[in-house]
């Protein structure tokens, strides 16, 4: 692997990480969707680059799916949902942007700490990619738990999944990657569908526990 190949891969993966942080920073739904679309596009570039570098042309399929489905279709669909369901455009963050960002930085540090000591037999490319991918995954998870809105949580999940695809394509010659990226897309479609059909708006996080009494037979006071 040449240094240029490495640098480009590194740049794209790093770009995804930056976009992940940016996602965490957003406090408006539509902006979040836009940033996510951007991340998906960067992902497809990164995957395409890996396909080119590894000479594994089937990965192009994955890149294409990422570009079309996650770069355009899903953000557009979510956009529609947000309008149709009249979801608050303001994102209710559980903790402020500052602490979230700090936590995010901590997570990045942790992933570097975890992956960097690994060097036996693992190519540098995979290793760098892995650190970034792990960070993206953790940040996605962090996003899921710091947002109260179903749509933004789905976005968090998709960002997490972007990290997975990044890691999978970085693993040289790994079988089943394409199939799995397809499967994940279906999964995501499912969740979008779920939000839409079942009107799961604030269901994700109903802080008002009293409202749940109607639904949960289990809610018990002292017997």
């Amino acid at each position: 692997m040449t240094s240029l190949q490495f640098d480009i891969a590194h740049l794209l993966a790093g770009g995804m990480l930056v976009l992940s942080l940016l996602l965490l920073y957003q406090d408006r739904i539509l902006a979040t969707l836009n940033v996510f679309a951007l991340q998906a596009i960067v992902l497809s570039l990164a995957v395409a680059w890996q396909a080119y570098v590894q000479g594994a042309m089937h990965l192009m399929v994955t890149a294409l799916i990422a570009l079309v489905v996650k770069g355009f279709v899903i953000p557009a669909a979510l956009n529609r949902i947000v309008y149709r369901l009249g979801i608050h455009r303001e994102i209710e963050q559980v903790i402020g942007a500052g602490p979230t960002m700090l936590t995010g930085l901590g997570l990045i540090a942790l992933s570097i700490l975890l992956v960097m000591p690994v060097n036996v037999g693992v190519t540098a490319l995979a290793r760098e990619d892995l650190a970034f991918a792990l960070a993206v995954i953790l940040l996605g998870l962090l996003m899921m738990i710091t947002r109260r809105n179903a749509v933004t949580q789905i976005v968090g999940f998709m960002s997490l999944e972007n990290g997975l695809i990044l890691a999978a394509t970085g693993a040289r010659g790994m079988p089943l990657v394409v199939e799995i990226s397809v499967a994940f897309s279906i999964l995501i479609a499912f969740s979008v569908f779920g939000i839409f059909v079942f009107r799961i708006r604030e269901r994700f996080d109903t802080v008002d526990l009293a409202a749940l009494d109607r639904f949960r037979s289990e809610r018990s006071t002292l017997q």
Partner: peptide
């Protein structure tokens, strides 16, 4: 039993982070 999904995810996340720190 009555947490929201987000909070449950938080539990998962916390457990994951603890385990990762253990590995680190």
């Amino acid at each position: 039993q009555f947490l929201t999904i987000r909070r449950y995810l938080m539990l998962v996340f916390a457990a994951l982070i603890v385990l990762l720190i253990v590995v680190a």
